[in-house]
Amino acid sequence: MSDLLTTAPTAGRPGPLAGRVALVTGSESGIGRETARVLGELGAAVVLNGRCPERLARTQALLRGEGLRVTGCVADVTDYAACERLVAATLATFGRLDILITNASISQRAYFADMQPEVFRRVLDSNVYGSVFPLKAALPHLVASRGSVTFISSISALNGMPSGSAYCAGKAALANLAHTLRLELAETGVHVGVVHIGFTQNDPDKRVLDAQGQPVPIAHRPPRWQKTQAEVARIIVRHVQQRRQRTVISALGRLIVLVHTLLPGLGDWVVRRSLRRLRNLYE
């Protein structure tokens, strides 16, 4: 289903992105909401997206109350027909599309041997098709505007994490998809990028599934390991503005890239040791 909540306000803020139109999937909450806020503060008109009409309406009202030019559209981005309607609603409201940020995803906390196959598929679909389908629907319009698509991946894509098999696989797929599309679309002028986010403060109701597909509590980590959602959002938008190919957020993420490339065995040992310490700390 796709449903435009209301028409958008006619005026937005001046700024470096004035005149640009951005679509951010999974922006009814969390990092997506904060990314939409930063885009709006820089002058872009923003289409918010999510699956919960009530939550999406609250976020739309919040950002409009801050003077931002936003509207919301309910759509399940793992459904291609819904993505076509989402893009059509964007064009009907704002007349163009310049920036697509595919942020919607479901996470997990379950070991592969315990996971029900349909749960694995649900997590993988949200992270892969939840990016593929919006881009497929939006691509002709991004070509027309010589615009930008950014996939939100994770440092988990750089080095596998126990209890995150489907999530890691999906996020790694996005990194390779971005590389492939960058080659295929090189002559079109479309920017294709990927951002690997690290540990970030999450909303309490972030969707994390157990092996049976039931929601599980968010793991709390020491503050020094985390960035705020606003910090991550600013990095994502700067990545888009600079049309970067890849951004790895946090020193930890960059260290993972280095160790995984040069000393993969050491990287696996560090991950296993860190997870044991976290389990001891929180259990």
Results as ranks from 00 to 15, higher is better:
S29C: 07
L281H: 14
Q201M: 11
G50W: 00
V46R: 02
I218R: 03
A175W: 04
V128I: 15
A89K: 04
R279Y: 13
H191T: 07
V237T: 03
G95W: 09
A251T: 13
G67H: 15
D79L: 06
T59G: 03
G265F: 06
R243P: 10
P264Y: 08
D203E: 14
I152M: 04
R243T: 10
G189L: 02
R122K: 15
P204N: 06
L100S: 03
H220M: 12
W269M: 06
L174S: 10
V259D: 01
A8Q: 12
V38R: 06
T180Y: 09
A173R: 05
S145T: 14
L158I: 07
P162L: 14
D98P: 09
Q229H: 00
P53Q: 06
V46P: 06
G26C: 10
H260D: 13
A178W: 02
Q245I: 02
T90D: 03
V270F: 10
A57I: 05
H239L: 05
G65E: 13
A138L: 04
G40C: 14
R238F: 07
N127H: 04
T7H: 15
K227Q: 04
A137M: 09
R182F: 01
L258I: 05
S154W: 03
T93A: 14
V47W: 01
V46Y: 04
S250G: 00
N176T: 04
R276T: 09
R13C: 12
G193A: 06
L181S: 03
G189N: 05
V132F: 08
T25K: 02
P53T: 09
R122Y: 08
